[in-house]
Amino acid sequence: MIAIKNLHKTYNPEKPNAFHALKGVSAEIADGELVAVIGKSGAGKSTLLHILGCIDSFEEGSFSLDGTETAQLNDKELSHLRNEKIGIVLQDFALIEEQSAIENVMVPLYFAKKKLPMAKRRELAKEALEKVGIGELAEKEVNKLSGGQKQRVAIARAIVNHPSLLLADEPTGALDTGTAEEIMALLTQLNAEGTTVVIVTHDPTVASKCRRIITISDGLILHDETSAVQ
């Protein structure tokens, strides 16, 4: 379960170009929820997602993940948290283009606390790729894949360690409508299997697939609505 309280984030603090991106955001997200975060460009959606993903810091407020205050964790503990509990999918896929799909999916396994033998890593990565429906593309170099396929590789990498929280920043932003729908179907399926999923999006159709929609504007939560039916 995620609990954030009065989160403040300022980019470049104490510099002329300082920017107050989050101005006191509070929310709770229960396990197994499917949440869309929407809002205008520059509203602070990605900023929030990065903080939830423990890849960026904040100055004020609190963020606890499954009861652990993340601000109290050190570098090492945070990196283990990212590795074990959180899967992140970024808008531009953030893949290593020159490597094969399976090698990309294996990356988180390098940083796992428990070092698995290479064969086992391969096996897990293959499983994740099959789960997202591209098991047959495992050995293909990423730069030879289509946008939709890349996004699937990125999702496979995010779920290879079976995280309880999956964060996706504009997962359909670069895709055509058909492919976008497939990716959304994949994310909702993962959610149905028990993963908490938070999706940042511009796309109303994507948002409409989520039971809960949080609207952010100018660094603050404007609406937080949970619809009764999907």
Binding site: D75, S79, E84, A94, V107, Y110, F111, R157
Partner: peptide, 12 residues
């Protein structure tokens, strides 16, 4: 950056 989001420490 990718290693980082996958759970690598920045100093590593």
């Amino acid at each position: 950056g990718i290693y980082f989001i996958c759970g690598c420490r920045w100093k590593d």
